[in-house]
Simulated assay, not measured.
Amino acid sequence: MIPAFPPYPDQDIPYFVQTSGTYDTDDWGDLERHGIDPARDWWCEAVLRTRRSDAIASLYPPGASRHQPLVDFILGAEDLYEAEAVAHRAIRVGRSIAALLADQSDAAAWQSLKGLGLPPGHTESIKSWIRAVEELGHRWEPLVLEASGWAGEMWTVSMIADFLGYEGASATNSARVWLSRKGLKPQGRQTGRRGQTEYDAELIRQAKEASPGKGRHGAQRKRGRFQS
């Protein structure tokens, strides 16, 4: 039986990012260096594949072998920063998949998969995969999902405050109030005890454009990032 996903946002899913050709998939020492116990933790590994201009993020449940991720999520990426965003999105996908393994009728889980760039027909592919997992007694082959587009940025509250033009000691509090009013929820969390919650930058931009006001005007952006 696949263990339940940790509650969100109370517990992090540890992850790390590497470049293809710089790691050994048979070496478990890198997991220990990142504070991951594969027998106990859900965890995610994202590999930037520079020749393909994408990243593949593999999400593992506790006890899975290194060659048996639950989900392989593929999305366009050009650098390690974007590969990290792919890891965040894979964790979001994995949370929904874990919920659907427990209850295929979980409407919230299906809803959360929308807007992640999954290919047309992904619903039927996921349902078929879940049936196969159940028939195999909760053994599985990885669910491979190749999304369209590119990895989105993840912003902390302080980054959002800067984007919205808030300044001073109350800037982050003002940003939190704005996020609450817009109904925007965290989509990830940085690793470590002091890791900050992170929000989908594209959703922030969309909400800002829908309600013009103070912000960082005039700067040109390339793939969502401000350029000097």
Rank of each mutant, 00 (worst) to 15 (best):
W129S: 06
A98Y: 00
G149H: 06
W140M: 03
V177M: 11
L164Y: 07
I91K: 01
S96M: 11
I160R: 00
W129R: 03
K127L: 13
V86M: 02
T172S: 15
S128A: 15
F163Q: 14
S158M: 10
R131N: 12
A147I: 06
V144M: 11
E134W: 12
P186H: 06
I130W: 00
Q187D: 12
W110S: 03
R131D: 15
L184P: 03
A102K: 04
I97E: 07
E135R: 14
A87R: 02
S96V: 10
S180K: 10
Y166F: 15
L145N: 02
P120I: 06
T172M: 12
M159N: 11
R181L: 09
R181Y: 08
L164I: 05
N173H: 11
W155F: 12
A87F: 04
R176A: 08
R189D: 07
G137A: 11
H88G: 04
I91E: 14
E134T: 13
A85K: 01
W178E: 09
D162A: 12
A85V: 07
W110K: 03
K185I: 11
A132P: 06
Q111H: 11
L143R: 06
E124T: 11
W178I: 03
L179D: 03
Q190E: 15
V177F: 10
W110Q: 02
R95D: 08
E135T: 05
G152Q: 08
W129Y: 02
N173D: 15
P142F: 05
A161H: 15
R139M: 12
D103C: 06
G117C: 01
A171F: 11
R181S: 10
L116G: 04
A161T: 09
S158K: 15
D162Y: 08
S112E: 05
E146S: 15
L136V: 01
A151W: 00
H138I: 02
L143T: 05
V177K: 07
S112P: 01
E124R: 14
L113K: 02
Q187H: 12
M154N: 04
G117A: 06
L136Q: 11
G183D: 01
G188R: 00
R89K: 14
W110H: 07
I130Q: 07
L136I: 00
G117V: 01
L143A: 09
K185E: 15
R139G: 07
A161W: 14
T123G: 05
P186V: 06
G121I: 06
G115M: 04
A98P: 04
P142A: 10
E146N: 10
P120S: 07
D103N: 15
S128H: 14
Y166G: 08
A107V: 13
D162C: 05
R131G: 08
E153L: 14
R92I: 10
S112W: 01
Q187N: 12
T156R: 11
G165R: 04
L143P: 03
T123D: 13
R176I: 12
A83P: 06
G121S: 05
S128Q: 13
L164E: 12
G152V: 02
A109S: 10
I160Y: 04
S180W: 04
